[in-house]
Amino acid sequence: MTERTVDRRNFLRASLGAAGGMAAFAAAVSPLKDFDTSDLTLEGFLQKHYKEMTPEDKEQALERIRKEVEERYAVRPELRDLPPIDGVEFGYALNLGRCIGCRRCVHACVEENNQSRDPEIQYIRVLELPRGSIDVERSDHHYDDREVPNPDSFYMPVQCHQCANPPCVKVCPVEATWREADGVVVVDYDWCIGCRYCAAACPYFARRFNYAEPEIPKERLNPNMNYLSNRPRKKGVMEKCHFCLQRTRAGRMPACLEVCPVGARQFGNLLDPESNVSQILKTKQIFVLKQEAGTLPRFFYYFD
């Protein structure tokens, strides 16, 4: 063996190894050919945090989203970015004595807020509880009686409590979720990195993660959209109940309330002493779920 042949052999051997390695690497990353790149636009990548956007930036972002929605769902959405109303802090009160557990609110919410149907995402959970206890550990989320209510049970719908001291906001590493001036905790779906720390921090199981690309039937898309609320989400980001900001910031009632057949749900402005929710806080027996967590919810349960 001369030096030359050794060299040539070494070179061949190395080339073969390198080529094989590259082939294996290429094969390993080959699933990426199915990657939906519409989600990775330069505009989207460069978009600033919601709070840092100038009005022009916002309009640009809104237009980009309108286009994306139109391409995907063939519907031109009424997408807006409604600001909080001065002197308004939203409060929600739910009458446990009335709720019959019919789950109308759950599904009205899905229709209103463009949640994914598969995998299923719902913001409201209705708990069936045995009379005489509000121990959620004894709750049944999956009751399927022919008719409700069951005479031995009462029902407790749970959704985001819009805490004044929200643990989810505290833990977010990138400030993708925060509490707005009207008390609603929102998510910037274009900023969330999908670490799910907020889901771990929430004591009310209010946060939902898009584990896969959300699927919404085109004909069921709600075109009345708002940037911080019900615009369609992408996979890999967190979402949650936002008191229907697209409605409530325009003075309307949330969807879950309007559909309630027994009028168990009340919604209004906590800063207005004459509002229905203020009256409930004044005159009814109120409790909040997991008060010991110190989260100061803006969602109250009452009895009458």
């Binding site: 789950r103 299923e120 995402i121 719902q122 399927d144 008719e147 584990y211 896969a212």
Partner: peptide, 11 residues
Amino acid sequence: RLAPLPGPHTL
């Protein structure tokens, strides 16, 4: 009294 809508069926 009402027939309830379907319960959760998450991933």
